[in-house]
Design a protein around this nucleic acid. Structure first.
Lengths: 335, 335
DNA sequence: CTGAAAGCGCTAACAG
DNA sequence: CTGTTAGCGCTTTCAG
């Protein structure tokens, strides 16, 4: 059996209360007995049980992290930075892949509560506003990353998606493009709608009319993007540039364009979003709008853990600014 | 406050023992009282505390998952399949990024034990054999994925790395290549050494002598691979083909080669390993040795959970076979 | 400074 | 069938 607090108390000739105090550095214990207890703990390799201490009302030092899919590089990089920061601060993180499915989401949330996690981070793709609301009502610390729910008072770290879209399109326009497509995902969340708004705004400022045919909605999949792009090249006045919802879709579009015989960037300029590893290793390297993933993960973890330690901290919404990374998939149109 | 078992007992007019029995479906309870209790649980939104039940010796339904870096697509895809299967079977998974650092590894292991996880999966890159040994001695269920420690009796799921290396090189030789480089990582684990052995064996069978200069050891980084490749192209008799330890390194090599003015695959054939998303989206699509990542993740999770449920199950080492996926980065040498 | 004792929410005999 | 009760390992008053 694993040694318990009783074992060390007995072996050290003190009471369990004393042992508890030296473990937690509370109360006043003489140096002498403190040393003795510490020594015994070493000897019998005693490890306090988090389960038992949690039952008395202390923290579990565990947080939940919900994202649609950890196999998606954007989410994986986010997970890495959240876990890193959590680890630094003494917290474990439970990974939950929701597939953006509200039912799965609700189930994870229930499990996490039953396991008494100290708090929960909801990543982009959170669908189930209702369950988040419940979380907040039950005073479970929660924070959002890369997404926002304007109607709720909750810590959130996100980027200015409007600006991201605006930057991408402004860049393309400055290169001389006028016919620019937008390859979106489902278009059913604020994030995407904001980027679309940025897209439209940039067009408008340049006096270019929005063309409904240039707005492609697909299913967040590589193959969809490829197919969409191919179709687009066959349309009458094909765009000379495309802005994709993320790097994966951008690369899908590039593949589709290449299959149709187009050269990148000469025949088609492409801008991605996120600046994941995919953008860096693409050939040619992908021009993209960078989200500061590391900072976002770190910041949201800090906010959540602050809230866990003191529930009266004032909530905040931290908006980081995206940055245009010009690489080699954009150039003036050659037409 | 969250409702407890006492709250439902009181409201339903029964004892907590009865409530406990309906929760766990143990003992014999009349349909009538069962329904009544269930109804009350619904009404007050009662959720049994995993912490409390764990304290009485029951499972926490949580497992730990150690890998070097979830931001690495290979690990991320593995994590996804482990978490998926865990979720199906009712287990949460705690993600731990070790950076292959033995101290971090040991610390995670300690935390996980203090949190009473039911079992632990160790991914490739596990460095600290000693702490794994301790785990086993303490009868904590553990299982290995994509790695093996021959001296320990522990469930493991891995691929035949020797065969993988052999397949890659045989493919290249069959295309007519004779001068083939191997871009390795650190070369300090069985996995890599096995692949190297496969490489050598294939060469030997073809009557090609092993050339020490064709073995490049780097640091698992994209840039290292790129640099290595560039150097290689400047050497006297540059290889006409290269086999890399994983897809990322293979793509790094491709970038290096392209910078040196080589065309892929005409001037240089490249074979990767893992068949991650990187291989599929590379341009040209990367020929690679596929690991059945989904199956591995699922299988190792099954083995671990079986062991959790019954510690007397016989341990096994499941060796899956890698598969050569020929795409477009390999062709006969044009020299 | 140190220890006795109550209690956290739940499970598992054991009685009835 | 249902309830009483003794823990699980730890924290926290409250006395001494």
């Amino acid at each position: 059996m694993k040694p318990t607090i009783y074992d060390v108390a007995e072996k050290a000739g003190v009471s369990i209360a004393t042992v508890s105090k030296v473990i937690n550095n509370t109360g006043k214990i003489s140096d002498k007995t403190k040393r003795k207890v510490l020594k015994v703990m070493e000897e019998i390799k005693y490890q306090p049980s988090v389960v038992a201490s949690a039952l008395t009302g202390k923290k579990t030092n565990t947080i939940g992290f919900l994202i649609p899919d950890i196999a998606n590089p954007f989410h994986a990089e986010m997970a890495r930075s959240v876990e890193d920061r959590g680890h630094e601060l003494g917290f474990s993180v439970v990974m939950c892949n929701t597939d953006s499915n509200p039912e799965k989401e609700a189930q994870y949330l229930e499990w996490l509560q039953r396991k008494s996690v100290d708090g929960i981070i909801l990543g982009s793709g959170t669908q189930n506003d209702a369950s988040l609301k419940e979380l907040i009502e039950q005073k479970i610390p929660a924070a959002l990353i890369a997404t926002d729910i304007p109607s709720l008072s909750v810590n959130a770290v996100l980027i200015d998606d409007f600006l991201g879209g605006y930057q991408a399109i402004t860049h393309l326009i400055s290169l001389g493009h006028k016919n620019i497509a937008f390859i979106a995902g489902s278009l059913n969340n604020v994030m995407e709608r904001e980027r679309l708004r940025g897209y439209k705004q940039a067009l408008e400022e340049a006096g270019i009319e929005f063309n409904r045919h240039n707005l492609l909605v697909n299913n967040f999949s590589f193959d969809d993007a490829k197919r969409s792009m191919k179709m687009l090249t066959e349309s009458g006045e094909r765009p000379t540039a495309v802005f994709a919802f993320n790097d994966l879709l951008a690369i899908g579009a590039i593949h589709g364009a290449k299959e149709a015989g187009l050269k990148i960037p000469d025949d088609l300029s492409v801008v991605g979003f996120d600046n994941t590893i995919l953008a860096a290793i693409n050939d040619p390297p992908l021009t993209t709008i960078a989200q500061p993933i590391q900072d976002m993960g770190r910041k949201v973890t800090d906010l959540l853990i602050e809230q866990i330690k003191d529930d009266h901290t004032v909530k905040q919404r931290v908006v980081l600014l995206p940055e245009l990374i010009v690489r080699q998939t954009t150039s003036p149109p050659k037409i």
